[in-house]
Design a protein around this nucleic acid. Sequence first.
DNA 1: GAAGCGTGGTT
DNA 2: TAACCAAGCTT
Length: 372
Amino acid sequence: MALQDQTRKAEKAISGDSSIAARLLAWYDAHHRDLPWRVTPGAFARGTRPDPYRIWLSEVMLQQTTVEAVKAYFRTFIEKWPTVAALAAAPAEDVMKAWAGLGYYSRARNLKACADIVAAQRGGRFPDTEAGLKELPGIGAYTAAAVAAIAFDRPAAVVDGNVERVVSRLYSIETPLSEAKPEIRALVEKLVPETRPGDFAQAMMDLGATICTPRRPRCMLCPVREDCSAILAGDPERFPVRLPKDDRPLRRGAAFVAERGDGAILLRKRPDKGLLGGMTEVPTTAWTARADGATTADAAPFPADWRRAGRIGHVFTHFALELDVFHAHIEGAAPVGHFWSLAHEISGEALPTVMKKVIERAIPGATKARPV
DNA sequence: GAAGCGTGGTT
DNA sequence: TAACCAAGCTT
């Protein structure tokens, strides 16, 4: 290990990698973004350290999710559950409700499972190594490295989409992205500095988010433009090279909004696994690839005076969906597997965005917060 | 290793 | 505006 470290240092001295890291860190000190989960640069040198719980929570929320979308959810979670012990003590249902709208709902289930393990088996303390972190549910290669570096000052190679873009431009990598990942990781490992590895990781990501952007990068403002091979090549925007994506199929179906006289709406819970796993929905038909999909009220889960309320569209990662929305007024007990959600409770249900669209189409305003 | 898994902002 | 794609993980 010591020998490897020496080799790494020697390679850096020769290649100038340490100068890239130094310039990035200086740039980060001056231009870093202020984010709710962040501490001031140089925390460890001052003898302070970030709260691993907050770093972990933010990193899970940030998986494939924009910073702007995460901010409000992060604040809500921290206010509701200030510690991992508090999150572990919370009912899973409450966590799903608080996550509703953020997407990729398996993250919320894994978040809760991870909190339970850390609280019950580890005295509320997160592992402080990449390997230890990666064993926990919902923590993969990226998140393990990010938490190890940012919360525990470990020299881990943090590789996310930003870093892939920055590095593929720095070295003008022509290999398409999926195939180039091992090469990119190796290059990042050589760049990581011995000191301030967490700030370095965040600097790379901030650079990718604000300067080395996917389109129209602001190269004139870049602290490492002198080192950038893609600028020499004349077209930084060409990197990273990506393979063309498969196109999204269209699925259709019908959704049924049953409303009681007092404004309650009939809901049910989806299975824990799969699409929108563990979330709440109104009754719907299956979502099929049929193109003839002239859905009718005949497909309703129970008879009622169903009126067509229109149609909504929604785009998921791997298919687009069109749902015909039907609306009816019914009374009485909820059918097996369903429950009535009172008018003032609907906004707090674990409703994914597609289901809020459906309900809003039938009953405008029904999913907005309303006084009790 | 490929496919499944949400949503919203940007261009 | 349709496409792109964001601090990826799991199976």
